[in-house]
Amino acid sequence: MSQSTTRASSAPATWMDLDNERIRAFRPDLPRVTPDRSVQLMRLRKEQVGRRLAALRACGRTPRIVLYARTVNGQTPVRSLTAARSFAERMAWQVGRDQEFTDCLSLTEVEDRLGWLRMKQRLASGFLDGIVAITRSDVSPHLNVYERELDWLTLHGGFIALVHAETVVPQ
């Protein structure tokens, strides 16, 4: 799970990374292409999940997870929650009773979503280790908001796992 991120990565450099670094140092005239921001955030999220899971394994603990899904017209997102629960079970993570949180799809700002805020409160209090959602857009379709939430989760010792990992389509 070691990957580059928007920040300096703690992953060991490969020969290709070292070679590229030397080329950049000795050939400043060459154009530099930065990775797509979606790719950077995907890598950041995966690194965070990997680091947190490794820390939990070292303590001999099973990750305590909550499930999160967005609703339409107040209907219970049964399929989304079932998919999230199946994912957590495949990963052998612990999902307690009544650990499903939902928010209306029309609430675009994370600060307006009661379910999201409750999960963050439980995570900050130490009652859970991570969140399982269906897609990145369940957190936010806006990359800067998504990154801010990833940073918050990391700062509070948590992570978010996605049933459908981010897909990056070349344009």
Rank of each mutant, 00 (worst) to 15 (best):
D36W: 05
D36V: 07
D36R: 15
R37L: 09
R37H: 06
V39K: 05
V39W: 03
V39M: 12
V39D: 06
V39A: 10
Q40D: 10
Q40S: 09
Q40P: 02
M42Y: 00
M42G: 05
R43D: 10
R43T: 06
L44N: 02
R45W: 00
R45G: 05
K46Y: 00
K46E: 14
E47P: 03
Q48F: 00
Q48I: 07
Q48T: 06
Q48V: 03
V49N: 08
V49Q: 15
G50P: 05
G50E: 14
R51S: 05
R51Q: 13
R51M: 11
R52G: 01
R52I: 08
R52N: 04
R52C: 05
L53Q: 11
L53R: 12
A54E: 15
A54V: 03
A55Q: 15
L56S: 04
L56H: 03
L56M: 09
L56D: 06
R57H: 03
A58D: 11
A58V: 11
A58Q: 12
A58F: 01
G60S: 10
G60Y: 03
G60R: 04
T62F: 02
T62P: 04
T62E: 13
R64F: 00
I65P: 11
I65W: 02
I65H: 04
I65A: 03
V66S: 08
V66K: 03
V66M: 09
L67S: 03
L67K: 05
Y68R: 01
Y68Q: 10
Y68S: 14
Y68C: 13
A69Q: 04
A69V: 06
A69Y: 02
R70L: 14
R70S: 09
T71Q: 15
T71M: 15
T71N: 05
T71S: 14
V72D: 10
V72Y: 07
V72Q: 13
G74I: 08
G74C: 09
G74T: 11
G74K: 07
G74E: 05
G74R: 06
G74M: 06
Q75F: 00
Q75K: 12
Q75G: 04
Q75L: 11
Q75D: 12
T76M: 14
T76F: 08
T76N: 13
P77H: 11
V78L: 13
V78F: 05
R79P: 01
R79D: 10
S80T: 02
S80I: 01
S80D: 12
